[in-house]
Design a protein around this nucleic acid. Structure first.
Lengths: 250, 250
DNA sequence: ATATGCGTTTGGTATATACCAAATTATACC
DNA sequence: GGTATAATTTGGTATATACCAAACGCATAT
């Protein structure tokens, strides 16, 4: 499938003569029309170059544009693909990744990268209201939606609240382990979100080009006594979720 | 002020020999160290080129990187500047732009672009639970933080709930107009957020290069009777806010 | 059937160059 | 001092080119 230049109808030309925006509009229109569907691969950059006769650098500018909008994504040295629909994320209704993703008809998967015991640094000591050096568990996981890695997370749990936690497998729901084996249930969440760039370890874990945009979500979960049950730093692909919050005004 | 190459200490070299990431790291480190402060202008691209001897295209790649992270922003043909701190945005505690920004020690400003009466299209008819063609007010505003335009918004209000609304000035708080003159107070908000690219009218209103990343916030405000008081589509600069939500689990 | 090895394709990075238009600054003028 | 105008600076866009390394596809050997 090769792309052809935009139709010669001036009403359709949204971009003011800028080549990279014309390419962007052409591809965006094809996605909107259903001509290109989630998961489909775009023609290679060089094939686009041959078919629409603009320089490869300019083509990459247009593709980066679509990527920033979340319409397409890249797999390193494999090609550009149409993004699947994002999942809708309501931090006030969060009941864990797995149930959340399944409820939207998608297939979740979790992979534990490592799980170790660490000593609280200043930041974590403050979060957990424990002395510096107090023992904590650190779990690193990668999570998938429909086989695409979408988030990388660091979870910290207080050893005092969940002794011997590391004997469990974390490829399932951590929330349910904490609830059923330790009687810890979350009654309140504090969630912070910020657009960020995914670099270093995060980008590598998600098999992304370092520096691609992402969303950093920091969640602190409290139980009824106000104790910190879970402290979670998540790095999401920016095109994998849409945030939706419904709440009463306080 | 010209940037010098990164120090010859291998432990400081975060980027694996990639020029654009080295530039990114150099500038990010200067910002973190307070050497470059919010509002400061970076050296011009050509000055950077002369001082660190890498091609201008590569320099722009590194700058775009920092922009995606929200560390710097550009003013068209004027230069690159260090971003001011984002404001913290809690959709569950929203009490209007002005009070919100002032509470964080910043200076808000509002500019009404136009205010007209329109007929409800299918989407708006559904939102307001009114027949298609029902009269609605459409207000377009641009809002500033510390003299920097940060968001462009379309507000829609039902004429039936706020007759003759257009006689007011909207350069102040619309929420307080609706409350004091029409007895409409918001008790519930529905907020959706999604990373987007700012294009066309939105980008122009914010004086941004079309296609730069932004955050699209759609807010529907309800009163105690469940009527839609305000339907608001906002387009934010992506570096202007950090989202923070605190909520009980339901 | 499975594994191995090897070209080929593909995106990633980098350089050099050119021209444009908007923004800014300097200048001349009143 | 203020104002119109010209020169300069600056980012924005675009092309052409080159090389690299990872991913991919395919023929071959096991």
């Amino acid at each position: 499938m090769l792309l052809t230049p935009p139709p010669n109808d001036p009403s359709v030309v949204l971009a003011d003569g800028l080549h990279y925006l014309e390419l962007r509009d052409t591809i965006a229109a094809r996605i909107a029309a259903g001509d290109l569907r989630p998961g489909d691969r775009l023609p290679s950059e060089r094939a686009l170059q041959a078919s629409i006769r603009i320089a490869r650098g300019t083509i990459r500018e247009g593709l980066a544009q679509l990527e920033a909008e979340g319409l397409i994504y890249r797999k390193d040295r494999s090609g550009w693909y149409v993004s699947p629909a994002p999942i809708v994320y309501d931090p006030t209704r969060w009941e864990g990744f797995i149930s959340y993703v399944e409820a939207q008809g998608r297939v979740p998967a979790t992979e534990t990268l490592d799980a170790t015991e660490i000593a609280a640094d200043t930041l974590l000591a403050g979060v957990f209201d424990r002395p510096r050096g107090a023992p904590l568990y650190l779990i690193r996981r990668r999570r998938y939606i429909d086989d695409r890695p979408v988030l990388f997370e660091y979870i910290v749990v207080d050893v005092a609240l969940a002794p011997d936690l590391l004997r469990f497998s974390f490829d399932q729901s951590l929330t349910s382990i904490l609830k059923s084996h330790y009687g810890l249930s979350v009654t309140r969440n504090k969630v912070e979100m910020q657009p960020c760039a995914l670099t270093g370890r995060e980008a590598a874990a998600l098999r992304l080009k370092p520096g691609l945009p992402g969303l950093n979500v920091v969640r602190t979960s409290y139980d009824a006594q106000g104790r910190v049950v879970e402290f979670d730093r998540e790095y999401w692909r920016h095109d994998a979720l849409r945030i939706s919050v419904e709440a009463r005004v306080r």
